[in-house]
């Protein structure tokens, strides 16, 4: 029973992103830099973005945290690269709904992110999953103003 519950949370896709994070590092020529942390647990993320002409050209993250927070960051960068700013913000919105256990807009291809749906069943871990997304929203949001 317990292990089955754990499998809902720790899907193999998540563990793969955790172990082999995509877009890990720092963009030297970035024009958006965001640092965010989760003060209650110590997770930190340093997100660098290159946003040109309203498009997220590149995204990289650095930081420290649990499997859920780091896998979510990896997936987030993968999803937003090449997206228009408003599309990236829309994805963040959809992701937030997913974490709240709401029905999500299924016209959007969330790719690997689907694997994080199980997090909504673990209330204490939702903030781990949303950290990178909040950082991205803050970053592209500030740029588009």
């Amino acid at each position: 029973m317990s292990i089955k519950n754990l499998d809902q949370l720790y899907r193999s896709v998540i563990m793969d992103h955790y172990k082999n994070p995509r877009n890990k590092g720092i963009i030297d020529e970035s024009n958006v830099t965001i640092d965010m942390n989760n003060p209650t647990c110590g997770d930190v993320i340093h997100l660098t973005l290159q946003v040109d002409d309203g498009i997220v050209k590149n995204a990289k993250f650095d930081g420290e945290g649990c499997s859920i927070s780091m896998a979510s960051a990896s997936m987030m960068t993968q999803l937003v690269i090449g997206k228009k700013v408003d599309e990236a913000l829309q994805a963040a919105h959809t992701f937030s709904d997913m974490m709240l256990g709401k029905e999500v807009d299924d016209t959007m291809d969330l790719g690997d992110l689907e694997a994080l749906t199980g997090v909504s069943k673990f209330p204490a871990r939702i903030k781990c999953a949303t950290l990178a997304w909040k950082a991205m929203e803050k970053g592209v949001g500030s740029d588009s103003e």
Binding site: L9, G65, S67, A124, R125
Partner: peptide, 13 residues
């Protein structure tokens, strides 16, 4: 193994 992940596994037990 990150302490959060340890704590979640323990909580499941």
């Amino acid at each position: 193994v990150h302490p959060h992940d340890v704590a979640t596994v323990l909580d499941m037990h």
